[in-house]
Each structure stands twice: as structure tokens, then as C-alpha cells.
Amino acid sequence: MATVSYPKQALKLKGNQIRVPLGNTCKRWFGLDCFLIPMPSNLGFSTLKELRILPRNKCFYWEFIYEKEVVVKPQLNQDSVLGIDHGVDNWLTCVSNVGTSLIVDGKHLKSMNRWYNKQISTIKENKSQGFWSNK
């Protein structure tokens, strides 16, 4: 019960399934020379590099190793910045160096948090220190 790794050269695509060879010893002992696993729909066989079979928790898992396309990072303008200050009454105060600013009001959020804490307080009233309820 160990991890088994197959390079792409050992695998073949038959229809929509991958043929995984087992070798002559398995064929001689069990009469089985290969088995088929379904090819993932979001992966192309040409990008596949390796297949690993992992025994975990009394099950076998397939792990497909493939090359991922290189994602081009966007060019950031280092001259434009945004400063964000989080507070209590004003949840977020944002100021940029290009002349725009915004304030996100936090009073409603603060009120909801206060109500929640009040509800928890009434549920835990006259209970032990570690008490917690599903309610």
C-alpha cells in the first residue's frame, strides 16, 4: 500500500478513459494486465505529465500532475495608492492619492454586533463559564 506513479509515456488514452498498465507480474498472478480510469473533463491528455495513485483512508485517490498555463500578472501603476483605515463608527475610511476618497459607515454593523452580544449574554446568564448552546 504505497504511492504508485506513472509517467505519461506509460499511459494511453482510449476513448474517454486512461489505460493504466499493471505489468507482466500482475497479469501472471491475477490475469489482469491493465485498468481504465475516466479522464477528467477539465484536463487535456496532452497537458498530462504524470498520474499518481494514492492509498488513503482505505480508498485509492488519483492525482493528475499537469502543466498549468502561465498567468500574466497585470501591470500595476506604482504611482497610484489607496490608504484604508478601519475604525468603529466609520468602518472603513479610504483615501487615494489621485483625489478620490470614500467612507463606509459602520454604525449599522456595530449595532448588529451589539445586539448579537446581548443575545449571547442572555443565553449564558446564570450558566457555568464554559457553557455554550446550539441556539
Rank of each mutant, 00 (worst) to 15 (best):
M1N: 10
T3L: 15
V4R: 09
S5T: 12
S5G: 03
S5L: 01
P7I: 11
P7S: 15
P7W: 11
K8A: 05
A10N: 07
L11W: 09
K12M: 14
K12S: 15
L13Q: 02
L13P: 00
K14S: 11
N16Y: 06
Q17I: 09
I18N: 06
I18K: 10
I18H: 10
R19T: 08
R19H: 02
V20K: 05
V20H: 04
V20P: 00
P21I: 04
P21G: 11
G23K: 00
N24P: 02
T25D: 13
T25F: 09
W29D: 14
F30E: 12
G31Y: 13
D33L: 11
C34N: 15
L36N: 13
L36Y: 15
L36C: 15
M39F: 10
M39V: 06
P40H: 10
P40T: 10
S41R: 14
S41L: 12
N42Y: 05
L43N: 01
L43M: 12
G44V: 05
F45T: 06
F45D: 01
S46G: 02
S46D: 14
L48E: 04
L48D: 00
L48R: 01
E50M: 03
E50P: 00
E50L: 01
R52K: 15
L54M: 09
P55M: 05
P55G: 06
N57D: 11
K58N: 08
C59K: 14
C59A: 09
F60Q: 09
Y61D: 00
F64L: 04
I65K: 15
Y66W: 12
E69R: 06
V72Q: 15
V72G: 02
V72S: 13
P74Q: 15
P74W: 14
P74L: 11
Q75K: 14
L76M: 04
Q78Y: 04
D79A: 13
S80H: 10
S80R: 11
V81M: 07
V81W: 05
L82Y: 00
L82N: 01
D85Y: 07
D85N: 09
H86Q: 09
G87I: 06
D89T: 08
N90P: 01
L92S: 08
L92I: 11
T93Y: 02
T93V: 12
T93K: 08
T93N: 06
C94W: 03
V95I: 10
S96Y: 11
S96C: 12
N97G: 03
G99W: 09
S101R: 07
L102H: 01
L102T: 03
V104E: 02
G106A: 02
H108A: 08
K110W: 05
Y116R: 14
Q119C: 10
Q119E: 07
S121L: 08
T122A: 05
K124H: 15
E125I: 10
N126W: 15
N126A: 12
K127Q: 15
S128M: 03
Q129A: 08
Q129W: 13
G130L: 07
G130T: 08
F131W: 14
F131I: 08
S133C: 05
N134M: 03
